[in-house]
């Protein structure tokens, strides 16, 4: 598969900080590329550089074969961006917002009406198209922004925290639309999100921390790398429990995360019954699960993604 975005040796230096320290990655055509990292990791800086909004210090970015520094207009025409915050004109109707977008992106005059109806259909806003955006609910606004981002048939759609601030129901609904897009249009998507369950839809995920990309792989591969199962338990006396585990139990990787003890084991089936017999301290809670992306995140960055939330 061809690469739609190529980033090589990308660096951004501010006066005191190196926000991005020479990163490299490719985004392949048709994939959903998840971009994760705690706040301050350099995620936004990277995206702004890719979207022509911020000049880089050094390095090269090409999108759809165009150089981001030298062919800004071509790059801008090749991408669609759904910003984290609302960027609709609320005083105008949905239709007017879309029409303006067509004109900014030079969509051929005779195709405009047809395309507007097409994208409105995808996000189910056909009947509301002549209402002013200020009358829309949060979810409807997001859907309209997604529709707008698609109008000029971009090669890559950037989704920056597309569901932030929405209730779970609306989030799920919105994801239905986004996945429908991927299936029907085969559009390449560049996704950032704080919700790790949402990042699971990605074909590949890059984890960024302190200006560097520390892992790139499919969600499954990233989780498999951590391996095995995760046992979370809490006991009446965690300190003593850890002591006992270290003395008596082999084949487990022990970490403490707040009030719970985490044991990483190759296979919980073989391990668990034996383990419980060996422990004298009464167990208060016990939970066995497969590693999630948050565990991957924790393993790479030493932080939970959510606790670093704004």
């Amino acid at each position: 598969m061809n690469s739609v975005i190529k980033v090589s040796n990308l660096v951004k230096k501010y006066k005191n900080v190196d926000a991005v320290k020479g990163i490299n990655f490719d985004v392949k055509e048709g994939e959903i590329f998840g971009f994760l990292g705690p706040n301050g990791a350099g995620k936004s800086t990277t995206i702004n550089m890719i979207c022509t909004m911020l000049p880089s210090t050094s390095g090269q970015i090409t999108i759809n074969g165009y150089d981001v520094e030298k062919q800004k207009d071509k790059v801008r025409g090749s991408i669609g961006i759904i910003f984290q915050e609302n960027t609709l004109d609320e005083k105008l109707t949905a239709n007017e917002n879309l029409m303006l977008h067509c004109r900014f992106y030079n969509v051929p005059k005779d195709k405009r009406h047809e395309r507007i109806q097409e994208v409105l259909h995808i996000v189910d806003l056909i009947d509301e198209q002549n209402q002013r955006v200020e009358e829309f609910s949060g979810g409807m606004k997001r859907r309209l922004e997604i529709a707008r981002g698609l109008l000029h048939y971009p090669k890559v759609l950037f989704l920056d925290e597309p569901t932030v601030g929405l209730d779970p129901n609306t989030r799920a609904h919105l994801w239905k639309y986004i996945l429908k897009l991927k299936e029907q249009e085969g559009i390449t998507m560049f996704l950032t999100t704080h919700y790790l369950d949402e990042a699971e839809v990605s074909d590949r995920i890059a984890i960024m921390d302190q200006g560097e990309i520390i892992a790139i792989d499919s969600p499954t591969a990233l989780k498999d790398e951590l391996g095995g199962d995760l046992i979370e338990l809490s006991t009446e006396d965690n300190d003593q429990a850890i002591q006992e585990i270290q003395d008596k139990v082999t084949g487990a990787d022990v970490t403490v995360n707040g009030d719970t003890i985490h044991l990483k084991v190759d296979s919980s089936d073989a391990f668990i019954s034996n383990f419980i017999k060996k422990l004298d301290i009464p167990i208060t809670t016990l939970n066995i699960r497969k590693p999630t992306l948050n565990d991957v995140f924790l393993a790479y960055t030493g932080r939970n993604i959510q606790t670093n939330d704004e």
């Binding site: 909004m53 800004k72 207009d73 801008r76 991408i79 910003f83 960027t87 004109d89 900014f104």
Partner: peptide
């Protein structure tokens, strides 16, 4: 303030 300038600035309009 209302974010619309972003929509204008990321578009290919000169």
């Amino acid at each position: 303030d209302f974010g619309y300038m972003k929509e204008i600035l990321v578009s290919p309009i000169s």
